[in-house]
Simulated scan of single mutants.
Amino acid sequence: MSTPLMEARGLQLRFGRVAALDDVAIDIHPGEVVAIVGESGSGKTTLLRVLSGLMRPDAGAVTYRGEDVLAMPEAARRRLMRTEWGFVHQNPRDGLRLGVTAGGNIGERLMAVGARHYGNIRAEATEWLKRVEIDPARMDDIPGKFSGGMQQRLQIARVLVTRPKLVFMDEPTGGLDVSVQARLLDLIRALVADLGLAVLIVTHDIAAARLLAHRILVMRQGQVVEEGLTDRVLDDPQHAYTQLLVSSVLAA
């Protein structure tokens, strides 16, 4: 297997008496989609925030392409997030500039990596609106005029336009209608495959994890209780908690 793009070992983080992360380790390889699943409060979103540099652990190590993420200056981490990383928030309003047009939201990300030619930026924004199934005629509309599903697709376009190597996704289909969720998952799967992205996705949706992920980590009370290839974990769960998660989905 290829050298991991990102590695983390021994991650510890406590909030008072609660262990949000308890000796967590994870590898993410180029082009791989890894899903983190678990109930609310399991530590999955905390892990995502630590790995993406938004939160510091009490102990442990995170490396990206051999570099110590936790030792990086804040400016270097911000530069990574603009270029080689991307973050798709559960609420698209957290990932969009609401006072900026749809095309401007995409164009800003391109300008952050050095694009300056207005015509080229607008052409690229047009192409990406098409890719995420938004009518390019809406380019000059602000995100507030879009539905929740359209806002999420616009956020994805904004993040992926610079073709990052690693994308963090926090419950990207949360809060959307079931039919909108299904379309969005199909779109994410197609874009990830087309661009060869590495993705770390947090979700409580076992069906979404099965559709998108090559590997899966199951978290409970700050610990990874089971991990492995997605089909293996979901079809033949070994840990009692994973068995409970899978059986609750089948019973639903």
Rank of each mutant, 00 (worst) to 15 (best):
M6L: 15
A8F: 08
L13H: 02
A20M: 10
D22H: 12
V24F: 11
D27P: 06
D27H: 15
P30L: 11
V34L: 14
I36N: 05
I36R: 01
V37S: 05
V37A: 08
E39R: 12
S40I: 09
G43D: 06
K44C: 10
L51P: 02
L51E: 07
S52V: 04
S52L: 01
G53S: 02
L54F: 12
D58E: 13
D58G: 14
V62P: 03
T63W: 01
E67M: 11
D68H: 01
V69E: 02
L70F: 10
A71R: 14
M72Q: 13
E74G: 04
R77Y: 02
R82M: 14
W85K: 12
W85Q: 08
F87D: 08
P92R: 05
P92V: 11
G95M: 10
L96Y: 11
T101S: 15
A102R: 07
G103Q: 08
G103P: 09
I106Q: 01
I106Y: 02
E108N: 04
L110R: 04
L110Y: 09
V113G: 00
A115F: 13
A115M: 09
R122K: 14
A125F: 05
V132R: 09
V132M: 07
E133Q: 15
D135G: 12
R138K: 14
D140A: 04
P143K: 06
S147D: 08
G148N: 04
Q152K: 07
L154P: 09
A157K: 08
V159K: 08
T162E: 05
L166V: 00
V167P: 01
L176Q: 10
S179W: 05
R183G: 15
L184K: 03
I188L: 14
A190T: 13
V199T: 12
V199R: 10
L200G: 07
I201C: 14
T203G: 07
A207F: 01
A207Q: 13
A208H: 00
R220M: 07
V224F: 05
G228F: 00
D231F: 00
L234F: 15
D236P: 00
P237N: 06
Q238K: 12
Q238Y: 07
A240F: 02
Y241F: 14
L244C: 03
L245W: 01
S247G: 03
V249T: 12
L250P: 01
L250I: 12
